[in-house]
Write a protein that binds this DNA or RNA. Structure first.
Lengths: 197, 197
DNA sequence: ACCTGAACACCGTTCAAGT
DNA sequence: ACCTGAACACCGTTCAAGT
């Protein structure tokens, strides 16, 4: 049987995650649905395969060449951008034991080495990476949200301050709001973690 | 029919989100499953009702009395703790148009006013709140993850740096790792955002 | 306006039977 | 070792018929 991972990505690309069913996956591979269970134990296993494949698109190459701040920035932006198009995987990866995902583990190894080389205290590195990752996952959701999410509709009267800050941001129209929020948060987090160190 | 929101919360408490089916919800209310559709358009509507109810448990009371840093801290901790037990709602809320959720909108109003009163530039407030919220949602997932998520299992040989930082953190055993990561990230984010301002 | 009962179009998973 | 075909136990949603 051809690669289940490849077939799953093809289905996701053409039909989205709602269209990623075991039946559609089997159809793409040209086999009966039940045949899939000779290669994976469950649909959750399929999502895990996809997750561990996508992780290899995350850019950890700057650790060791750029400064720590720049390397973290490149890593975080690429990580968010990859999963913004795959938000249904976030519940999977956020709770994923690393033991079953070799490429995910390799990413943590590269990032950990980058933090150690930058002089971070070892006992604070896991917390720092987890904090950055939490921010990245939440931001991936935000990047996938509709643009008019903060439209208050008819209930405008009772929320003057909220309306004012939404309008103040709109007037700047400096690119996509989700990108502005991610950029501001990432800079704050990087600077804040650097200071704690 | 008694409150759908109350009944949904009862089902979630006793059977979890996997057990929250339209059949179980109807059973708790003592009506036929199809009767639910006279009150909600879909199961997504039920999740929305639950989300907007839970938001009222988030503590925004410190804005206006405590310092900005302390008020944001109280808000963020309570927000994360509420949704750590309701992670299936995160995809709902993260992409939710505020127009349909009055209590969620009221929370944004209170937080926006807090930021304005603290002297934040209006055009940066939406980004700051979205960044904090993204961190909070991602951290809620992390808080719900199994404790041994970073156990590398059998692939120990190829990840010396990652193993070293996980061990360094374990040796401190300073409370729950998820709480340490959230505390460190939140402090970094608050300080970093304050400086940008 | 709100309810019931039955049906519909799915879904992931299992398993006996084959090769 | 890997496949097929059929079945199973669900799931959310619809709709004619009632009150």
């Amino acid at each position: 049987m051809a690669s289940i991972t490849r077939a799953a990505l093809a289905v996701i690309t053409s039909k989205g995650y709602d269209g990623l069913t075991m039946a559609a996956l089997a159809g793409t591979l040209g086999v009966a649905q039940s045949a899939l269970y000779n290669h994976v134990a469950s649909k959750q296993d399929v999502l895990l395969l996809v997750e561990d494949h996508l992780i290899s698109r995350v850019d950890v190459s700057r650790f060791g060449s750029d400064t720590w701040e720049e390397a973290v920035g490149t890593w975080a932006w690429s990580y968010r951008n990859v999963f913004a198009n795959h938000t249904p995987l976030i519940p999977v990866i956020a709770v994923l034991p690393v033991a079953g995902a070799p490429r995910t583990l390799a990413m943590y190894e590269a990032v950990s080495k980058g933090f150690l080389d930058a002089g971070f205290p070892p006992e604070r590195i896991v917390s720092a990476i987890v904090a950055l990752e939490s921010f990245i996952f939440g931001s991936a959701y935000d990047a996938s949200a509709p643009a008019d999410i903060f439209n208050v509709g008819s209930m405008t009267g009772s929320t003057p301050h909220f309306r004012a800050v939404v309008r103040a941001q709109d007037l700047m129209h400096a690119g996509r709001p989700a990108d502005a929020a991610f950029g501001a948060g990432l800079e704050a987090l990087i600077n804040g973690l650097r200071i704690q160190q």
